[in-house]
Amino acid sequence: MTAGPNKEDWVWVSNPDHYLCRQVGDTSFVYNRLSGTTHIFNLVSKAMLDYLSAGPKSLRTIVTEFHMFLEVPAEECPRGVARRLFDELDDIGLVQRVGP
């Protein structure tokens, strides 16, 4: 299951106006204003949300560069993992395509 089609050159962003975030310890409660659903993020998924909220990026950039945002070597955050993290946010409607 996916939220829909995707391509490497599509550009995505998260809009901080679309969600509320409250940290309780290492856990983040994220309320999605569009869906009305509360999600629980851990440190890694929260990092992806912050990364996408910081500005638009292509899917290609997201999967290859997310590890830098995390400050870990590339092999600790393989492309597949970054892609799955992105898909999880896409599935719950927290990312929007803004280009091309």
């Binding site: 829909g4 089609p5 409607g93």
Partner: peptide, 8 residues
């Protein structure tokens, strides 16, 4: 979500 599913 429908829009998303049909994107592109």
């Amino acid at each position: 979500r429908i829009k998303r599913a049909l994107l592109g």
